[in-house]
């Protein structure tokens, strides 16, 4: 999940104006809200935060995988990884465009990312240390993203929902390529299998954290769920992810780094250990292993690209002036 701990601002049902009640009724009926239609300010702001954080995650998410493109072990793996990272940039583009329909520009959102006022998913603050991490990221990180994004295709805000539909089409390819890397390594030499196990050990808990804190600590969920900006609780999605992922790990012959992991017949799901939430909050605060590098990389790209963007705008102005003069 690329949106964590989104602050939601709503009005309690008993305090709603008739306009707000009518709006909520539309959402309850499953209608889509479109950009030009009236919406409560809180709905708009919450959506901007969530779509913005999601967009930033796609963009920052290029970095840990981009880290291995030049070292990909075969031409085919290189091409596939390039295609995947290119997709992620495209996802960023769709999402910034969806956010723009709510009245916030891409540049404004970048500004907030660069100043630290807006966050991106905690997962991208972890380093990718071996080639097996390209497998683990695709399998677990894109896998967790899919858990969240598939239901969001039905979200109440039209442009967000449509962006999710386009994105989900590509995400399953991302997860499959990751799993294919894991499979090749798990079936490979002993060193490759060790590398795959090590990647799973390092990414398992950070992947569980992607769904955000437990429901009992998640203060903003209720309003976002009423608005259908959030479709499932954090714990529901995390459980679903564990249920689907554990058999995949078994199929690979790798072990999930959780000694308490056990099938619970009654709930028809696995019991599993919670991640270390103090680590999660530290990463969110900026103290993860790669927070500084990730943000610096984005800020540097932006600052060093200023002359490029200014050059293009200056040319566009000259061209427009020349057209005016010709008329």
């Amino acid at each position: 999940m690329y949106a964590q701990m989104i602050k939601s601002e709503g009005t309690k049902r008993e305090d709603m104006s008739p306009q707000e009640l009518a709006f909520q009724a539309r959402i309850d009926r499953g209608e889509k809200i479109e950009p030009k239609e009236w919406m409560p300010e809180g709905y708009r702001k919450t959506l901007i935060r969530q779509i913005g954080q999601h967009a930033h995650s796609e963009i920052v998410g290029q970095l840990p995988e981009g880290n291995w493109i030049t070292r990909a072990p075969t031409l085919e793996r290189k091409a596939i990884l390039l295609a995947k990272v290119q997709d992620e940039a495209g996802h960023g583009l769709y999402l910034y465009s969806a956010a723009e329909t709510l009245g916030v520009s891409r540049d404004e959102l970048f500004e907030k990312l660069h100043s630290g006022a807006m966050k991106y998913s905690s997962i991208f603050n972890y380093p990718t240390l071996t080639w097996a991490d390209m497998g683990a990221v695709g399998w677990l990180v894109d896998g967790a993203a899919i858990m969240n994004q598939v239901p969001l295709q039905r979200t109440s805000y039209g442009p967000y929902s449509r962006a999710m539909i386009r994105i989900c089409k590509e995400e399953s390819f991302h997860q499959r390529q990751g799993y294919s890397i894991m499979m090749t390594m798990a079936k490979g030499t002993p060193a490759q299998k060790d590398m795959a196990q090590d990647a799973l050990n390092r990414f398992w808990y950070p992947a569980l954290m992607m769904f955000g804190p437990s429901d009992k600590d998640s203060v903003h969920s209720e309003q976002s769920m009423a608005w259908k900006i959030k479709m499932n609780t954090n714990d529901e999605l995390r459980q679903k992810f564990v249920n689907e992922t554990v058999p995949q790990a078994e199929y690979l012959g790798l072990s999930v780094p959780d000694e308490t992991l056990a099938w619970n017949e009654e709930k028809q799901g696995y019991d599993f250990a919670e991640p270390d939430w103090s680590e999660f909050f530290e990463v969110i605060k900026g103290n993860g292993p790669c927070n500084r590098e990730r943000l610096e990389a984005r800020v540097t790209a932006w600052d060093e690209g200023a002359w490029f963007r200014e050059g293009l705008s200056a040319h566009a102005e000259k061209a427009a002036a020349a057209r005016m003069a010709a008329e």
């Binding site: 963009i59 030049t70 091409a79 390039l82 290119q86 940039a89 583009l93 790209a301 963007r309």
Partner: peptide, 26 residues
């Protein structure tokens, strides 16, 4: 070209450069 991945001056460039690199590897 692939060294630019994620470090381009604009999102459109990130996409175009990754795409160019992908074509060249193909």
């Amino acid at each position: 070209t692939s060294e630019w991945c994620g470090h381009g001056p604009a999102l459109e460039e990130d996409i175009a450069l990754a795409n160019t690199a992908l074509d060249l590897i193909g």
